[in-house]
Computed example of a mutant assay.
Amino acid sequence: MLDVWLPLIVGLVLLIAGGDVLVRGAVKVAEHLGVSPLVIGLTLVGFGTSTPELVTSVQAALAGSPGIAFGNIIGSNIANILLIVGISAMVFPLAVSSSGLRR
């Protein structure tokens, strides 16, 4: 039991520590170069969310499974678009007149 949980916990701690070091370092470099905090945040979030998909797609392509890489790309884009549209609709719902609903 310990041979499963110990590497899992150590890996999670290392992942969190590495992510923290990466973000702090990127922010310091960007601030030194005069980049705005908004651009720093958007860039880090963009790379952070795309990296697992990139790794999965590259591993699938190298293993000779282009279908997995293709499905990963398509599924990720569909999920991202629908999540953004859904959250936007929840935050700022569109006002539609009743005559528009009857059509």
Rank of each mutant, 00 (worst) to 15 (best):
G19S: 01
L12V: 10
L12Q: 09
L33Q: 06
I81E: 00
T43G: 15
I73L: 12
L44R: 15
G100V: 14
I68L: 12
K28R: 15
G46Q: 10
N80T: 03
V39I: 06
L101K: 08
A61F: 12
T49W: 09
I68V: 10
A60G: 03
L101S: 03
F47C: 07
G11F: 05
D20N: 14
M90H: 02
I16M: 14
I78K: 00
A89D: 01
I73M: 09
G19Y: 03
L6E: 10
W5F: 13
D20L: 15
V96E: 03
E31Q: 15
V29M: 05
V23L: 08
G64D: 02
D20A: 05
G75W: 03
I73W: 07
V58K: 06
V45L: 10
G64V: 05
V96L: 03
N72M: 13
L8E: 06
V58I: 12
G67L: 13
R103D: 13
P7V: 02
V29F: 11
M90P: 02
E31A: 09
A79G: 04
G71T: 09
S57I: 13
A26D: 02
A60F: 02
P7F: 04
G34W: 04
T49F: 14
G46C: 11
A69N: 11
I40N: 09
V45T: 13
V39L: 12
G25Y: 02
G46V: 12
T56S: 14
S36H: 13
G18N: 01
V96W: 01
N77W: 14
V96F: 04
V10K: 14
L54C: 13
Q59T: 08
G34A: 10
G48V: 14
W5C: 10
V27F: 09
A61T: 15
R24N: 15
K28S: 13
E31D: 14
R24L: 11
V85F: 00
E53T: 09
A95E: 13
G18R: 01
L94I: 08
I68S: 03
A95F: 12
V13C: 15
V21Q: 04
L22R: 03
N77L: 10
I73C: 10
